[in-house]
């Protein structure tokens, strides 16, 4: 137990030294929104195309989740690793000494992994929230049409919650940020419905 608390303390110190929490927060919200919006597009598109098989929506959604997750994991890891190497070199120049084995060097090696996890898991998490009703529909607990409604409500709820979180960070009116995020979802809905309407006419 003691070693676990020591590991947590060390991670906390790494986060403090590298100031990664700000970056991780941005990764989380930005990619979380990406996840929700992508699946919202899939769901609305499926609705417009009158897809009645929840399996198709779940598989399309999971495929998108996986792609976003893997892209986030690798993209964030490589980007953050390169950025951290630059920072360490700049610091070494500032202090006129190498930082091999130092706290800063160890923290810089740990931070890309944390950034990759946040970047990879956040879109997967938010996308999965939207897919849950269709998974329930696959086992015939609710109908596919009810799944569409519940899923769209959950997706807009997720977007609103991400907005509230941003409003809390900015220390401004949280609901206003929430509504801005929802507005982005409404734009997708509008475009998909227009395209769906054009196809049926």
């Amino acid at each position: 137990m003691e070693s676990l608390s020591r590991v947590i303390d060390r991670i906390r110190l790494y986060i403090e030294v590298t100031h990664i929490s700000d970056i991780a927060r941005r990764y989380f919200v930005k990619n979380g929104m990406d996840g929700s919006m992508t699946v919202l597009g899939i769901i609305l598109g499926s609705w417009a195309a009158r897809v009645e098989n929840p399996y198709i929506i779940v598989m399309a959604g999971l495929g998108a989740c996986l792609a976003m997750g893997v892209s986030g994991l690798f993209g964030a890891y490589i980007t953050e690793k390169a950025e951290r190497k630059k920072i360490i070199k700049d610091l070494e120049e500032s202090i006129l000494s190498d930082l091999e084995g130092s706290l800063q060097q160890n923290a810089s090696e740990f931070v890309p992994t944390l950034a990759a996890l946040v970047d990879g898991l956040s879109p997967t998490l938010t996308a999965m929230i939207s897919l849950v009703p269709f998974i329930i529909s696959m086992v015939k607990i609710i109908s596919i049409w009810d799944s569409y409604i519940v899923s769209i409500i959950l997706t807009f709820g997720t977007l609103f919650a991400l907005g509230l979180y941003l409003g809390r960070i900015a220390r401004e009116r949280m609901w206003l940020y929430g509504l801005q995020m929802v507005a982005a979802g409404v734009v997708i809905a509008f475009v998909v419905f227009v395209l769906g309407g054009m196809q049926t006419t």
Partner: peptide
């Protein structure tokens, strides 16, 4: 001593 700004002085 010349130190980097992180960790801060208390730590």
């Amino acid at each position: 001593v010349l130190k980097l700004r992180d960790p801060p002085l208390p730590e």
